[in-house]
């Protein structure tokens, strides 16, 4: 089985979710007997990152380097990926289920005329074919899918698959593309960053989420401090109640009408645990809840809970985490 992992680059780096996709492609290809390749799109200097991708399991890295590909473009990228897929004759194509991946993959599906399974949380090989599992109803159920087309096209949910470093480098080859960016109708005008260096809640390996129990947007400095203590992989989340109140930006909302997250560690601080919130975070690795109401539904899904006033618990938690990190 020949599998292509389509990876992203941002500011000269290949983000974690993309490394996970390469590793997943590599282990599936290994299981089925075959090879995993990676496809990297970017500006003229993007080739520099290509060789390093071998460390995550890509036997070959195809690089499409072009000025017009420096940033994701919704009209340009799908064409280039389509070309790589058609030329390479792949049996499966995997992308990260990030905003970019979930925007690109459906366009690619339509261009290739194959169905798409978004947000896969489990994949395996049975009788030489891929078995894909994905959450539906916001994680209240899971389905196993059978894809009746080739290539099999899927996006993988970030933080669920492991990025594993392996031995061995990759062969790097360039994909010759002919592009006519003037014919692309969409103008990518600008980008307004919200979080600075803080990872987005959908990608963060650790999430500190606050709810109405925080009482006031001013109190978010408590959560900021905790997030900072937890390190650079930690991001901030929020319940819908506080987003609707205008305390936090929409981009931080976790849940049915917000983002679905699966971090290794999720802190729910002053969040009751309504079904729509749980939908967005129940696949997290470890869930910690701090709530003064011992009957709050969040405790039904939390691995660890503290019943108490968050205004006392959170600062102490921040302190203890800092002390722990200081010890190394």
């Amino acid at each position: 089985m020949k599998i292509l992992a389509v990876v992203e680059q941002r500011d000269g780096e290949v983000p974690g979710a993309s490394r996970e996709v390469i590793s997943a492609a590599a282990s599936l290809a290994e299981e089925a007997g075959g090879e995993a390749h990676a496809l990297l799109l970017g500006g003229p200097e993007v080739s520099e990152q290509a060789a390093a991708l071998g460390a995550f399991g890509a036997a070959r890295v195809k690089v499409a380097a072009h000025d017009a590909l420096a940033e994701y473009h919704p009209d340009g990228y799908p064409q280039v990926v389509r070309q790589a897929v058609e030329e390479g004759g792949y049996d499966a194509v995997l992308l990260p289920a990030t905003s970019q991946g979930k925007d690109l993959a459906p366009r690619l599906a339509a261009l290739l005329d194959v169905p798409l399974a978004q947000d896969i949380t489990r994949a395996s090989v049975a009788e030489g074919a891929l078995e894909l599992f994905r959450p539906v109803y916001a994680g209240k159920a899971f389905t196993q899918l059978k894809v009746d087309a080739s290539p099999v096209l899927a996006t993988l949910r970030p933080n669920v698959f492991q990025a594993q470093e392996r031995d061995g480098g990759a062969e790097v080859e360039s994909l010759e593309v002919e592009l006519d960016p003037d014919s692309w109708p969409t103008v990518v005008a600008s980008f307004e960053a919200t979080g600075g260096d803080v990872p987005d809640v959908a990608e963060a390996a650790v999430v500190v989420s606050g709810g109405r129990g925080m009482k006031d947007p001013e109190n978010w400095n408590l959560l900021e401090d905790l997030r900072e203590a937890l390190g650079s992989e930690a991001g901030l989340g929020a319940s819908r109640a506080v987003v609707d109140a205008g305390w936090r930006p929409h981009g931080e909302q976790v849940g049915q009408t917000g983002k679905t997250v699966a971090p290794k560690l999720y802190f729910a601080i002053g969040i009751s645990g309504a079904i729509q919130h749980l939908a967005g975070m129940r696949t997290a690795g470890t869930i910690v809840a701090v709530n003064r109401d011992p009957d709050a539904p969040i405790f039904k899904v939390a691995d660890y809970g503290i019943v108490g006033d968050l205004f006392e618990v959170v600062p102490r938690l921040t302190q203890e985490v800092r002390d722990l990190k200081a010890q190394g």
Binding site: I287, F299, K300, A302, Y304, I306, G308, P315, R316
Partner: peptide
């Protein structure tokens, strides 16, 4: 998800 443990009450449980 098995309901986990309540580690304790208040800041002392941290």
């Amino acid at each position: 998800r098995e309901a986990g443990k309540i580690v304790g009450e208040g800041a002392d449980a941290v």
